Amino acid sequence: MASGYGLNGGPGRCYPFWQEVLGCYVVNSSEGEAGKKKCIPALEDYNECLHHKKEILRAMKMQTALRKAEAAPPRENSPNAEQIRSLGLIGKEEESAAVLAQR
């Protein structure tokens, strides 16, 4: 909220980020434009808290990658569900013994 108060009367969700931006500007105000450039990371954090643009973009990229993976044809040599479940270790005692005997 613009007043600095949240929905339940306490401080707003992004108010600590805004205080950080103001503190940065106060500390670096004597340096002019160079001082403002030092506050860019704090201002970006505040804007992300308000609008969640980076978070939304990341979620959209993940959804796109998931859709692409689902639409891709299956791999030729992919393991079946039983091989994945057992990791190839259960029910292979004879093969395991043969491998250990070679050492």
Rank of each mutant, 00 (worst) to 15 (best):
A97S: 15
Q83E: 13
N80A: 06
G23R: 08
Q83R: 11
P79T: 02
Q83W: 05
Q63K: 14
Q102K: 15
M1F: 08
A34G: 07
E33I: 06
L7K: 14
G4M: 01
G88M: 01
K38R: 15
W18S: 01
Q19M: 11
H52V: 01
G12P: 00
E44G: 01
A65W: 05
N28D: 04
E48S: 01
S30L: 14
Q19C: 08
H51C: 08
E94M: 13
T64P: 02
P41Y: 03
E55G: 05
A81D: 08
G91K: 02
E94W: 06
V26I: 12
G23H: 01
I90R: 09
L89H: 14
P41K: 08
R67W: 08
E44A: 13
L7S: 13
Q19P: 00
Y46G: 00
P79V: 04
Q102S: 14
G32C: 11
S96Y: 15
P41I: 04
N28R: 05
K37R: 15
N77I: 05
E31M: 11
L7F: 11
E31I: 03
Y25K: 10
K37T: 11
M62F: 07
Y25V: 08
A101N: 08
I84E: 09
L43G: 03
H52L: 13
G9E: 02
K54I: 05
E95M: 01
N77W: 09
A98P: 08
G6C: 05
E55M: 07
E95K: 07
P16E: 03
E94H: 14
S86H: 07
C39D: 02
L66M: 09
K37H: 13
E33N: 04
S96A: 15
L57N: 09
I56R: 12
K61F: 03
E82Y: 12
E55Q: 10
C14R: 00
I56T: 12
V26S: 06
Y15D: 11
K37C: 04
K36N: 09
A42D: 06
S78A: 15
E93V: 10
A101L: 07
